[in-house]
Amino acid sequence: MDGRDPFAEVYGLLEAGDEDGAQSALDGIEEQSAERNYAQAQIYLKKKWYAEAGAQLSFAMEKDPGNEKYRKAAEELGAMAREGRKAREGHSAAREDAKSLAAECCCECSCELCVSGICEFFSG
């Protein structure tokens, strides 16, 4: 060992936007450490492979449970998913509200738009 960080090249290439280069550099490292999983997760995050990145961060934390850097990265990924989940679940709830609003609207008015548009949509 010459004392150099074997992952510095991977992070450098990733910083420069060269994901394929970073992957090749990582493939050249034999060490099967938690840092390797973390570095792999960083490459996957750049590629927007979030599920794969999450799995790698879990491996890293299993191998080195006290590592703050790994924990923080996993938390950030979890926060992204929670933010996205709001879009999925929030709009579903809003749509249910809109459905009941349309139903109420039909009871109170019988404008052509309501009858031919909204009601037909929900009854279809």
């Binding site: 979030y50 999450g54 990924l77 998913a81 933010e83 996205g84 989940r85 879009a87 999925r88």
Partner: peptide, 15 residues
């Protein structure tokens, strides 16, 4: 949960 995570991170990215 895994399938949800996949789509939720995708919605984050879209946004």
């Amino acid at each position: 949960d895994d399938v949800g995570f996949l789509f939720d991170t995708l919605f984050y990215s879209l946004r």
